[in-house]
């Protein structure tokens, strides 16, 4: 170890620095965090208003609707993930930094989850209550949403990195990510439905956890590769 190496900040510090920076930026512009949340709540309330379901139907279809709304809200917030960094040139600095890029991509995804996934998980009980979900089901739903939104943030970071700087990136990002996100949606929604009907649902939780682990290990590398390509 030479003296120069020791002066570089450690891996953890680089990761924390990028998460803290994104959280601070969001603190200055709270709309970016709140808009997807409002969007989530509105989509979730569209269904009871448009379909006028009976209480039983509401309980049966509720998990699916909450999950679709969560997926759409996450996609909405993903657009801005790398956009401001790209526009003000700080993305160049991130790519050129001595820290490994996958780790910084993981930091961006972590910040995105803290700003969009976590608030969504915390707000979801309100919607569950309006859908007349029993209290123990609400816990299952929050667990699936927590595991699922982590996967969506990681997966979405790849899409956001691929489309950053493209004119029509907005709709394109959703087109790229939605088919890839389908397993998360299927398992998330079905697990809650199974819990609601009193069936064993542990398999779904295990799958979501396994998917989350797979995304945690692989997605940052794809994000890093995509960032380098997009910023050439």
């Amino acid at each position: 170890m030479s003296g120069q190496d020791r002066q570089l900040p450690g891996l953890m510090e680089g990761f924390i620095a990028i998460v803290r920076r994104d959280l601070l930026l969001a603190w200055k512009r709270p709309g970016d965090v709140l808009n997807p949340l409002f969007f989530f709540a509105m989509v979730a309330s569209l269904f009871p208003l448009a379909a006028a379901p009976s209480p039983e139907q509401l309980m049966l279809n509720g998990p699916g609707v909450v999950w679709v709304a969560a997926l759409l809200a996450t996609l909405l917030s993903l657009n801005s993930l790398f956009l401001s960094d790209f526009e003000d040139g700080s993305l160049d600095q991130i790519i050129l930094s001595p820290q490994p890029l996958p780790l910084l991509g993981l930091g961006k995804a972590a910040a995105h989850w803290l700003l969009s996934g976590l608030p969504l998980v915390l707000v979801s009980p309100l919607i569950a209550v309006s859908y007349r979900m029993p209290a123990d089901i609400v816990g299952v739903m929050m667990l699936t949403l927590a595991l699922g939104t982590v996967s969506l943030s990681l997966l979405g970071a790849i899409g956001a990195a691929l489309t950053v700087g493209l004119n029509r990136g907005n709709a394109l990002l959703s087109l790229l990510i939605m088919p890839l996100a389908m397993p998360v949606l299927i398992f998330g929604a079905r697990t809650v439905s199974l819990a609601a009907t009193g069936d064993p649902y542990a398999a779904g939780i295990y799958f979501l956890a396994a998917y989350c682990m797979l995304a945690l290990t692989l997605a940052p590398f794809a994000t890093a590769a995509a960032l380098k390509i997009s910023n050439e």
Partner: peptide
């Protein structure tokens, strides 16, 4: 050249996901 590389990343991410998608649809 950029389109080649960006779409290649997407194709590979998709290839990892296809078995998972098939499995999840079957489970469902």
């Amino acid at each position: 050249a950029k389109a080649d590389k960006a779409s290649a990343v997407l194709a590979l991410v998709g290839a990892v996901n296809i078995p998972i998608i098939h499995f999840s649809v079957e489970w469902w």
